[in-house]
């Protein structure tokens, strides 16, 4: 889960759909697990778009297309590029576990739903918000060359389409950036704040 972030350069998997809700990312019937097994959730990422009711891969879905079917590994398919309003709906963190479990480290979109964005960050998946124009061009670049790569530079907060050379700055607050670069989570931080919590309660 916890992973240090620095610079990630990888090919992408495109999902040019808008309003992808977390029920599609991981359907409710997979939420019955009582443990956080990444592989289980990763295997069922986009389950009903990926497989038909007989568990046969649906040829039309991007994960099943030859150019994008290789599982993510260093430099390969570590970045999911999705249409705007990604992760809307249910707060289920299982959606972020599925994305992380599949092997994505970065999700690029022009707009994320609030709760899902936090869930990704809490699972060391980096949501990168880009402009509509940058996103449209990125989908075009991937269409032209599925092997094209994107560079996500966390220290400098830049995302670069290496096919066009175009770059954009992305937002992340200083605290969260420090956490991601050092593989620390919020609970590690909060556990050190007990005196402040007690002071608040005694006010």
């Amino acid at each position: 889960m916890k992973a240090k972030f620095d610079i990630i350069t990888s090919t992408c998997v495109p999902l040019p759909l808008e309003n992808v809700d977390t029920d599609q990312i991981i359907p409710a019937r997979f939420l019955k697990a009582t443990t956080r097994e990444e592989k289980f959730f990763g295997d069922n990422l986009f389950r009903d778009w990926r497989y038909d009711s007989d568990n046969k891969p649906k040829a039309g879905f991007v994960f099943n297309q030859p150019a994008f079917s290789a599982a993510p590994s260093e430099g390969v398919h570590q970045i999911l590029v999705a249409g705007k309003n990604f992760g809307s709906g249910s707060s289920r963190e299982h959606a972020a576990w599925a994305i992380a479990g599949y092997g994505f480290r970065v999700v690029i979109s022009s707009f994320f739903a609030d709760i899902h964005k936090n869930n990704e960050l809490n699972n060391f998946v980096l949501p990168v918000v880009v402009s509509e124009g940058f996103l449209a061009e990125l989908f075009e670049s991937i269409k032209n060359d599925p092997q094209m790569k994107v560079k996500v530079d966390v220290p400098n907060q830049t995302v670069t389409n290496l096919a066009t050379g175009k770059s954009e700055k992305f937002e992340i607050n200083g605290y969260k950036k420090y956490c991601l670069m050092n593989a620390l989570d919020d609970i590690d931080y909060l556990l050190q704040q007990k005196s402040k919590i007690e002071a608040y309660e005694n006010k």
Binding site: S91, R92, E93, I115, N118, N122, N123, D185, Q193, I197
Partner: peptide
């Protein structure tokens, strides 16, 4: 609404970031 990591956060500290 919050995610499960945040649920753990509140259980541990009665606070959320």
């Amino acid at each position: 609404g919050i995610g499960t990591s945040e649920v753990e956060m509140v259980m541990a500290s009665q606070c959320i970031l």
